[in-house]
Design a protein around this nucleic acid. Structure first.
Lengths: 200, 200
DNA sequence: TTACCCATGTAACCCGTTACATGATTTT
DNA sequence: AAAATCATGTAACGGGTTACATGGGTAA
């Protein structure tokens, strides 16, 4: 579970409530991580039980009391320990690749449509990342006055962008290869024939 | 759940037992998907209940009977339907990026070590992919006599490789940027100072 | 008046991994 | 003698998503 440590990480910025942590997530690590409130609240409880955060309650009227969490010394130690710990390489677990893997089951034209659509989706996400998210990070660094963090935040966004670009390139190359296979021969790649309709 | 459809996909190659499906997984989609037997067996049961596969039992002595699963017409329909269905872009959910995101909490030197180690791991995986896995696919296509599948199988491996290469490049660029930040000034990036030991 | 913001949570469910259970046969 | 292969499964646990529950204040 990395969520515990992700929360500890955010709490190094400043003490926050669960609700605020969620907002921070949504506006910062959104491009490579996500967390729901229903997961954040119990996790904060666990962090408190382990002594990695302290809680203090701010009483409110006409809405639930705020529970403000602050990282402790042992919390910082744990975060540092975790960061330094070797991290196994993450594997690509993308259902779209399964679809491509079994692409021989349908006509090449259909696969071309799929690849184009997927590429366009990736392009949208990339464009969003290069504009909105980039700006969000710039603002965040400025607003929170954390110049040292800016570089690292930018690096993670860069990785996400590099991934999207690699994906888009791959879609293009794949489409080109499929188109070539269409031109080369009509026997090895079915287009709109019986075999095709069988799997659709 | 994509496992159902991944299994259907493999069963288009030929009828198999759960055990054989696991072997096929390990030697083909391994680079971007994985499945345990403990998950495969119940899933096959579910596929049978949905009428997407047929089961026939081959009695054996001195070991459990083989249950051979074969994809049905409705199974092929379902597979085609699923493949054509739009697939949301997969998100990068890599704990290593969280570590980088909060990299400002420890000395730049330590982050350089982390990046180098991660890069080397990715290089190992990539090397394995470019040699062993590439060969496996070549053999698989030949052995199963499925020339049309070869192209698609190669494409998925190419995507996995492209991802690893992008990752490696990103590690290199990140290390270079961090090194520059070390040279530029000693104030904005702590190296071995109090702040550093605090989070370690 | 409808919808969103604040602020907390619990419960159910889904998917995946790990551990446990059985047990003959074959290879090292 | 030990380990891997064949061949089936169940149970427990972990982590994440969705749905459910509450309810006042504020903006469209």
């Amino acid at each position: 579970m990395s969520l515990k440590h992700a929360l500890l990480g955010v709490l190094t910025v400043r003490p926050m409530t669960g609700y605020e942590l969620k907002q921070f997530f949504d506006s910062s690590v959104q491009h490579f991580w996500n967390a729901e409130l229903s997961q954040i609240y119990p996790t904060l409880k666990a962090l408190e039980e382990q002594g990695w955060v302290d809680k203090h309650v701010e009483v409110q009227e006409s809405r639930p009391n705020k529970k403000i969490y602050e990282i402790t010394g042992s919390g910082r130690d744990e975060l540092g320990r975790w960061i330094r710990n070797p991290q196994p390489t993450a594997d690509l677990r993308d259902p779209f690749l399964i679809k491509v893997f079994f692409g021989a089951n349908l006509p090449v034209e259909d696969m071309l449509v799929l690849l184009r659509r997927q590429m366009e989706e990736e392009q949208k996400v990339l464009a969003f990342s290069e504009t909105v998210l980039t700006e969000k990070i710039r603002e965040g660094v400025k607003y929170l006055d954390l110049p040292r963090h800016g570089l690292f935040w930018t690096l993670t966004l860069e990785m996400a962008n590099a991934y999207r670009r690699a994906y888009i390139d791959w879609c293009e190359r794949s489409m080109r290869l499929l188109e070539e296979s269409l031109l080369e021969d009509g026997t090895s790649a079915p287009h709109g024939d019986r075999d095709a309709s069988r799997a659709g």
